[in-house]
Design a protein around this nucleic acid. Structure first.
Lengths: 258, 258
DNA sequence: CTAATATGTTTGCCATTGAAAGACAAAGCC
DNA sequence: GGCTTTGTCTTTCAATGGCAAACATATTAG
């Protein structure tokens, strides 16, 4: 990639995100931070941006029409979910092919893997769209029928696409976790898709904040033992912690980071 | 191979890839790097490209329509395009199964069909998302590889999904319309998808504002006669109006509404 | 034959990048 | 507040490799 290309990509990112981070950019383009700083210097001399400690922000005097209240992209997410995203991000290695299930939990994972090099398979079109700009991330959308009022794709096309794909790690956000009912989600159609994913993935990782425990949603995905790793918060009820421990299932919680 | 031939091949490559690499080109044409640099010098003097350390990039000022810099999010839609959307909407009947191609033109069509009862097939995830909330609209997303920095799905999965679908009306937004080159779009991969759509659809409708006439984008979709209906503005060059009339192709323009 | 054009070769120069070192800023900690 | 620690920034230096200019060679047109 030429310097000029990198700089114009930085411009695009700035126009969209209004801010950039030196370290993120250096990972994104696989160059040292010094090089990124030199790029930012150049763009700063052009008046395009204003350098700050750790990165730069868009020069608003240059673009007065761009309002910075793009709530949709940087919507308020609980720190709980953000932490789940970070933990998941740490599990992902370079070159992985991962699956992200529909929902805000996996969206948060998506937001934390932008600077990695990997393949992401998803049946959530918003998750796909979120990752469209990052050169290291190859996005495959399964296709299918769009569920009303959501961004999830279901049905035969989704299923068939998954049948031809190999996944190393599948991150699945669930709506309910319960001893009796196991992992549950809202819709039967989702179970069909996720069931196929579970079959196809070398590793299944359940992601759910603590509010999902002791709840049962509509459709059963499977027994609590279908996943060998679970990501959640420290408020997980102790009987579940106990269960996971006894069944040799790794429970990752925010506790480890505090 | 003559110098001129080589240079026009370089132009073609640039239009497609937006960038060229001196060393790659010198290997490709079996000439020294000096020769390639001289070629690039000449094209730079013509304003076709901008030289950079190691190669050159397409001069985007020369080809503003080829730059795909996130038009979807923040560009206000011209009333021209809005009118195209309304005309298209009038063509759609209850119960139709239509296809919408990626791009802002078909997005505008999507915005005008929300109250109808129909099935929409698309390989643009933003168009799909736009229609997610409307009970009468069943949305099928083809799936596939997400093209970087766009919302278009391409590749094998997209193709395969289309093979099993029946479409009554396909609305296709094109980037260029020209007597010699026919209908053209930006990427070869798009042609594969749209070609399948054209095969599968009972009726093909080209949608393009008047700026697309007498222009040629990179990849040829087909002859001007592949569609029996075309939607555009009243500023369509008269020679094209004439051509469509003689070939019994219906040209719908905003004129009829004013 | 001569001039013009196209291409290759050589050479010294310079742009780009990364590594390293020290300056500087931010955030905690006593 | 002053201190340390951590992380970021700037500067300098060196290496790589691309670049331009001058010259050489070949091919073609007139």
């Amino acid at each position: 990639m030429f310097a000029i290309e990198r700089q114009s990509r930085i411009k695009e990112i700035l126009l969209k995100e209004k801010r950039v981070d030196v370290i993120e950019l250096s990972k994104m383009f696989s160059v040292t931070e010094v090089t990124i700083r030199r790029d930012l210097d150049k763009l700063a001399r052009e008046g395009f941006l204003i350098k700050t400690y750790g990165g730069a922000v868009l020069n608003k005097k240059q673009f007065p029409d761009l309002t910075d209240t793009d709530k949709s992209s940087q919507e308020e997410v609980s720190t709980e979910k953000q932490m789940i995203g970070k933990i998941a991000s740490n599990m992902i290695e370079e070159g992985d092919a991962i699956f992200l299930s529909p929902g805000t939990t996996c969206m948060e994972i998506a937001r934390n893997i932008k600077q990695k090099r990997l393949t992401v398979v998803t049946n959530d079109i918003l998750i796909g769209y979120e990752l469209r700009d990052y050169p290291g991330v190859k996005v495959i959308v399964t296709g299918g029928d769009l569920m009303h009022s959501t961004s999830a794709l279901i049905g035969g096309f989704a299923l068939r696409a998954l049948q031809d794909i190999y996944i190393s790690k599948a991150f699945i956000g669930v709506k309910g976790i319960h001893f009796n009912s196991g992992y549950t989600v809202d819709r039967h159609e989702e179970v069909m898709i996720l069931g196929e994913v579970i079959k196809k993935s070398r590793e299944v990782i359940i992601a759910a904040d603590y509010t999902k425990f002791n709840r049962t949603a509509f459709a059963r995905l499977g027994d609590l033992r279908i996943a060998k790793k679970v990501i959640s918060n420290k408020q997980v009820p102790s009987e579940y912690k106990q269960f996971y421990f006894e069944n040799n299932i790794k429970l990752y919680t925010t506790f480890e980071f505090e």
